[in-house]
Computed example of a mutant assay.
Amino acid sequence: MQQLVFDIVPNNARRMAKLLTHECDVIAYPRLAELALVSERPDVKVQESTSMNVGFWAFNTQRPPFNQVKVRQALALAINQRAILQAVYFNQATAARSVLPPTSWAFNQQLATPEYNPQAAKALLAEAGLASGFNMTIWAMPVQRLYNPNALKMAELIQADLAQIGVNATIVSYEWNTFRRKLTEGEHDSVLIGWAADNADPDNFFRPLLSCAALESGSNRAQWCDPVFDRILNQALLTDDQLQRRSFYLAAQQYLQTEMPLVALAHSQRIQAINSQIEGVTINPYGGIALFSARRVQP
């Protein structure tokens, strides 16, 4: 390679246009809605990899009625996860059963598949004393991320689902820095956001998202601090026996599915599109584009 030029193009459509007109050779994060069209072109290669991320819907468990487990369970039952995967991820994601991706060595295969059951959701709300429903906010992040490429669209789908069980949801969004600050201050009822890990250790998913320490640092969007859950995580770090560690993480996932401080929605695919004349470019499930072996092959 004799020359490498980085062209910063924030606009999705312009990035794709530059690839298709051969003004650039590699783009990250092509729009999922355009993948089918791009994949049919002989001059473009599409690379995919299972990414270590999770998109989720977190409840502010320090605010009523989200401090009630039955309410959180009801909201989880009320949403159509399959419709979200189709409309937001264009089926370029795996339905989540845990914050851990299914490729993780600690993933709990025994977890129940997420159920869409509005009637059961209504029954749980009635048991929680909310048979008439309630009002709430869904905060949708204003930026596009791999784990959630369109939070506003997702919020609209969830809003419609919640209306079917008598819950009136208002969608809220702010400029990104303001959004993050207000989240840290706990002003939200619920939020659509996610997490991208920089290593595959299960602790890198559980601790930053749901531990009591993460509540102090500001990354615990569920505002959830549970001593039982923290104890499980700490026990998992006290041994280097992977089988024993796995048993603790299996228990942690089962506990989360019962307590439901958040609803794990999807693990998105990492995708990049490349000019077919470029070889040696690999895709990294943790992010970035490896270019050290890149070369152009003349047709």
Rank of each mutant, 00 (worst) to 15 (best):
I27A: 01
W105F: 10
S276F: 04
Q223G: 06
T61D: 02
S276T: 08
S132G: 15
A236T: 12
W176R: 04
Q164M: 03
D7R: 15
P142E: 00
A13F: 10
T103K: 11
N168V: 12
D189I: 04
W105L: 02
N204W: 12
L124E: 04
Q62L: 10
L125C: 03
V54N: 12
F107G: 00
Q86F: 08
N117L: 08
T21P: 00
E40P: 01
A155Y: 07
W105K: 08
G129E: 10
Q73F: 15
A266P: 13
I193Y: 15
V228N: 11
D201L: 11
L20K: 13
R207K: 13
L243Q: 15
P142G: 05
E156V: 03
I158D: 01
E48R: 14
E185K: 09
L19A: 06
Q257S: 07
W139H: 04
N67C: 06
A76L: 06
A106V: 06
A87V: 02
D161Q: 05
H188M: 04
D201T: 13
N11M: 02
A213V: 07
A13W: 12
N135Q: 14
F107N: 05
A33T: 13
V281L: 10
K70Y: 02
V167Q: 06
E216K: 15
I283W: 05
I271G: 08
R41F: 03
L243H: 14
H188W: 03
Q81D: 03
T137K: 13
Q269Y: 11
S276G: 04
T239F: 12
E34S: 10
L75N: 08
I271A: 02
L100R: 06
L238R: 15
F206R: 01
H188E: 01
F205M: 03
V167L: 07
A128Q: 04
S173D: 00
S211F: 07
N80Y: 11
I289V: 14
H267L: 01
E216T: 14
S219Q: 10
V228P: 05
Y249S: 03
V297T: 13
M52Y: 15
M1W: 12
P102H: 08
W139G: 00
A36Q: 12
A78E: 12
N60P: 07
L209V: 05
A196K: 15
N199H: 14
V26H: 13
G129D: 09
N148G: 12
A28H: 09
K153R: 15
S219C: 02
A273G: 10
A123L: 10
L192N: 08
A140P: 09
N60H: 10
W224I: 01
A120E: 14
L210M: 11
A96F: 13
L291C: 04
L157V: 02
L124M: 09
A222N: 06
R180C: 08
A151K: 09
Q277S: 14
Y29E: 13
V46H: 08
Y147R: 05
V69S: 03
V263D: 05
W105D: 12
L237N: 15
A58N: 01
Q253R: 11
S211V: 06
F248K: 09
Y174P: 00
T50S: 11
L162P: 07
E127Q: 13
V88C: 07
V99I: 15
